[in-house]
Write a protein that binds this DNA or RNA. Structure first.
Length: 936
RNA sequence: GCAGGGGUAGCCAAGUCUGGUCAACGGCGACAGACUCAAGAUCUGUUCCUGUAGAGGUUCAGGAGUUCGAAUCUCCUCCCCUGCACCA
């Protein structure tokens, strides 16, 4: 036996597979299967967590290929968008973590220098992904079709997609608000903080700015997230320490903070400061009128009114807003809060009650006040109802009144909307990021009713794993709104064909791409140039419109018809609400029905202990190549497929991976041992093994067919090993059947652990097991009788062990009493009658008592039958009880096995024979499949 | 807020759709034994409670219900996690 040197084994077989190009897919007569994973963004080195989904994809692809499908499994890179630029920027500003990781990976300073260029970043990582990750894991990806989304050909493809969307009226222009830096232009607010230095978690909030009219006609604009509380306004708050400004906006005169004026200027046209100096103190004591309710309220000093937030002016609703309540208490003004929302839990004065509970006394206790605000808001929003003070809105739920009141204020020009970040966002240049209006932003109209409905209808026909996601999808599609599809700024991608200088954003350029894998092969071979990829070309090859310009067009059209649609698009759960919906909708929008996707497979994540994201600082192995070295690729593949179902998050746990590694090493030597066994046949146990093998194959094929990868892995790597161990333990040593078993077993291991399987296969064979046919089962080889016998024996052994455990006897002799004939007859009869649906006590007794001998035992029989009938309910596999086996003969044959097991004398007696040794009268307990036992 | 997923023995994690073979797959950890100079690996057994005869008792977040029978079905409550759009 050669030692199990997994690294050598992996490298050797990978080289052999790739040298003989078994991964390349070509059109032929066989049925096709097209699978791919959502291509990864290019954002740096990946870690072991990312390999989970890729591995699932390879397992499925390999299984399908062994089942005789012509499998297409391509892969590419999603290079568009921010990530590669972000990476290049980090290199440029010498971000120490980034530079360090590159050095650690073995890059020279010159090589690092080159990565200041985002295109170099894509090139470099593209290579790392293919060579160090995918090939290193033995994936039979069709590498001849590799592609990236920033290649010239891909861009032509995306432009074609947008021509088609336009044709179908699915591109629309409307107003939009986007993050913007006054110095740098458009910026992205995202968690990776590529463009910005703080505020990656910020959300855009929509404030309603309500216009309060002062005596002199000036407007005091108060911003709120709760317009429905307008009925409870008792006063206004301005900050006495702030100097406000007077502005002209859309023909009106407003007073607001300087910061607010700046922000409004980006969201509305014609904003102009006309008076620089309105100290807050000058406003205090004046009055203004509340719209709708038309009541006059005083302006009071409130130091919590932050000039940085919205307009810097706050309307006061002390009954329902903790900040307002506390401020009112602090000013000592004799103003009574006006309660306008009925909510039993919080009583008459909700804000006061919660402030009291949290023990808040000052406007400066912002943390507690925020908590109080949150509590009141949530309760009121969900369960609150507006009361009699709210005019025609009385009795309405807060959640619906809110929208109605807001719409009324907006449409009557008594308010407008102002967008604001939930937290401060600072650009990398140091400037504050604002929200800017884009009057004519292009959108993909995913809200389109026809498109939505057709997509929902298509989902019904799809194979979606897990099923829960299939049920969720219609709701997601319904909810999916128009999506801004282009932007300006630092961003890689395809030029938008209808507006110069704008780039298509990366969600929108990654929806239809699986079809591009069909042509990327010709691009890579140099047969197809970007300049030839005209609208006519795509129309012809994808839609069959027009005529083929040349033979190549015809060939590609043939490929498209053969390979498309996609059978499985596999991706992580992060894709559920964005990528998969647009993947479906773009196919539905553009391609004919027969080319729409057949299936989606969603997998969950690998997390660090305690549900954290994997990171090196937390002790996770980041580099995939490093992990491959420590654990071995097959061990990792087995770990991914077995440690949990694909539809739960799994925790990365190095010690568990080691267990799998040991398990494989063990399996490796076990198989060598099995193959060295050279013995003759033993009819019963040989038939048993054959029966079990066929049963396992059935289970495994069924599991794989439903992509139940964990079940398949469990059967192959655990149950089958248990079976073969039992066979050997029971004295099985039939060389022919062992050989056959191992060969079938190796084939079934191949999708999950291809390297070790290939290695062991080559002990006897020259061909690739990766190209072999997956085993099939033959139900005729199921042998119920032999299985029952082994079950009987196992049950007996367990019973003896339990008795030994409880009694702590060291056995000198064990007597086993098999079932008396009559009990077997009665049991069989019961199951027979049950099968015919005629089971009842009188029927049973009538039939049994036709036998004269039985009549003598009538009383005993009825008692026993009653017990069996009662127990029978629990038994599902009833068929096996109708099979007759002679327990005595069988167990007598196995006496020597039992003797070696318990190291004492074993005596087998039929319970109904006259001449037996039974000092404790145990034999009366014997029943079918449950021999009685006496130990001394 | 909107939407989705989940809570199973010391831990991880199957089972839930299709109720009965479920004291509940598998793995880890722990304990005992074998092997070994030793360690590791491997193998055997035990691991909810009780029990000197293969049994009984109490469990699957909590509560209520349906049923001959519920981890599985229904309703309510509590707790945890995830996604939400110009980030991929």
């Amino acid at each position: 036996m050669k030692p199990y040197n997994y690294e050598d084994i992996e490298r050797r077989w990978q080289k052999n597979w790739f040298d003989s190009k078994i991964y390349e897919s070509k059109r032929n007569d066989k049925q096709k299967f097209f699978i791919h994973f959502a291509y990864p963004g290019v954002s740096g080195y990946l870690h072991v967590g990312h390999m989970r989904g890729f591995t699932y994809c390879d397992i499925i692809a390999r299984y399908k290929r062994m089942q005789g499908y012509n499998v297409l499994f391509p892969a590419g890179f999603h290079a568009s968008g921010i990530p590669s630029i972000g990476f290049a920027k980090k290199v440029e500003r010498k971000d120490p973590i980034t530079i360090n990781s590159l050095r650690e990976y073995g890059l020279s300073d010159e090589e690092i220098e080159k990565l200041k260029d985002p295109y170099e970043v894509v090139k470099y990582f593209g290579n790392v992904y293919v060579e160090d990750y995918w090939k290193r894991f033995g994936f039979l990806i069709d590498y001849s079709r590799s592609m990236s989304t920033i290649s010239p050909g891909y861009k032509k493809f995306i432009q074609w997609q947008f021509y088609k969307l336009k044709e179908k009226n699915l591109l629309v222009q409307k107003q939009h608000y986007a993050p913007f830096c006054p110095n740098c232009g458009p910026v992205a607010v995202d968690k990776s903080e590529t463009d910005i230095s703080t505020g990656g978690n910020a959300e855009i909030l929509e404030f309603t700015v309500i216009k309060f009219l002062m005596d002199d006609g000036t407007i005091l604009p108060a911003a709120t997230l709760r317009p429905e509380t307008i009925f409870g306004v008792t006063n206004m708050w301005v900050n006495p320490d702030v100097v406000y400004v007077k502005i002209k906006i859309m023909g009106e005169i407003w007073i607001c903070s300087r910061e607010a004026a700046r922000k409004l200027n980006y969201q509305y046209d014609d904003v102009e400061i006309i008076d620089e100096e309105i100290p807050g103190t000058h406003l205090i004591g004046k009055k203004c009128r509340i719209p709708i309710v038309d009541r006059e309220v005083p302006i009071l000093p409130g130091i919590f009114a932050d000039p940085e937030v919205a307009t810097g002016i706050v309307m006061s609703v002390p009954a329902h807003a903790p900040y307002d309540y506390i401020a009112l208490v602090e000013t000592g003004e004799p103003i009574k809060p006006i309660t306008i929302i009925d909510i039993p839990e919080l009583g008459e004065k909700p804000a006061a009650k919660v402030c009291d509970e949290l023990n808040i006394h000052s406007q400066k206790e912002t943390e507690k006040l925020d908590e109080a605000t949150d509590i009141v808001y949530k309760k009121e929003f969900h369960t609150g109802v507006l009361n009699d003070l709210c005019m025609e809105y009385a009795g309405m739920k807060v959640s619906s009144a809110k929208e109605e009141i807001k719409d009324r204020l907006l449409s009557s020009n008594q308010a407008l909307t102002m967008r604001e970040f939930s937290e401060e966002v600072i650009c990398r240049c140091g400037e504050k990021v604002v929200i800017k209006q884009i009057p004519d932003q292009w959108f993909i109209k995913y809200s389109d009713e026809k498109l939505t409905n057709e997509s929902i209808k298509h989902v019904e026909k799809m194979n979606i794993y897990p099923i829960e996601y299939k049920e969720e999808l219609p709701g997601v599609l319904e909810w999916f709104d128009d999506r801004a599809c282009i932007r300006k700024g630092s961003w890689l991608g395809t030029e938008f064909p209808f507006k110069e200088g704008w780039i298509i954003e990366p969600i929108s350029d990654s929806t239809l791409y699986p079809i591009y894998y069909i042509i990327s092969k010709y691009v890579n071979e140099g047969k197809l140039l970007a300049m030839d990829m005209t609208e006519k070309f795509f129309d012809y090859i994808f839609l069959g419109k027009g005529t083929a310009k040349d033979a190549l067009w015809g060939e590609i059209r043939g490929d498209v018809l053969y390979w498309y649609p996609v059978d499985i698009n596999l991706g992580g759960k992060e894709h559920k609400t964005v990528h998969f919906p647009v993947f479906i909708m773009n196919h539905v929008a553009i391609l004919p029905e027969e080319m729409r996707p057949n299936g989606i497979f969603v997998h969950w994540w690998v997390t660090q202990k305690g549900k954290e994201k994997i990171s090196k600082s937390k002790g996770g192995v980041t580099h995939i190549a490093e992990a491959a070295k420590i654990y071995g690729v097959d061990a990792m593949r087995l770990y991914y497929s077995h440690v949990g179902s694909p539809f739960v998050d799994i925790e990365w746990d190095p010690s568990t991976v080691i267990i799998y590694k040991n398990r494989l090493a063990n399996l490796y030597s076990l198989i060598y041992n099995i193959l060295s066994i050279d013995g003759g046949e033993n009819k019963h146990i040989d038939r048993w093994l054959k029966s079990m093998l066929n049963r396992r194959i059935k289970n495994i094929v069924e599991a794989f067919d439903e992509y139940n990868l964990r079940v398949a892995a469990n059967e192959i790597f655990f149950e089958m090993q248990k079976d073969i161990n039992w066979y050997i333990k029971r004295g099985g040593k039939n060389k022919t059947i062992l050989q056959y078993y191992v060969e079938s077993w190796l084939k079934m291991m191949t999708p999950i652990t291809p390297h070790i399987a290939e290695e062991l296969w080559h002990i006897r064979y020259e061909s690739f097991i990766s190209n072999a046919e997956f085993p099939t089962y033959d139900e005729k080889l199921f042998s119920m009788e032999d299985e029952i016998k082994e079950d009987l024996l196992q049950g007996l052994i367990e019973d003896i062990q339990e008795i030994l455990k409880v009694t702590k006897i060291t056995p000198k002799r064990i007597c086993i009493y098999t079932t008396p004939k009559w009990k077997q007859t009665v049991t069989k009869k019961i199951f027979e009658l049950e099968g015919k649906g005629k089971l009842d006590m009188s029927n049973l007794m009538r039939e049994i008592l036709t036998d004269e001998d039985m009549k003598k035992k009538a009383k005993e029989i009825s008692k026993f039958a009653g017990k069996i009938i009662n127990e029978m309910r629990k038994i599902q596999d009833k068929q096996r009880y109708t099979i007759d086996i002679d327990e005595t003969i069988f167990l007598k044959e196995e006496t020597s096995y039992l003797e070696s097991l318990f190291n004492c004398d074993i005596e087998i007696y039929p319970a109904d024979s006259k001449d037996i040794y039974d000092p404790k009268g145990k034999s009366s307990f014997a029943s079918p499949f449950r021999p009685a036992i006496y130990i001394e």
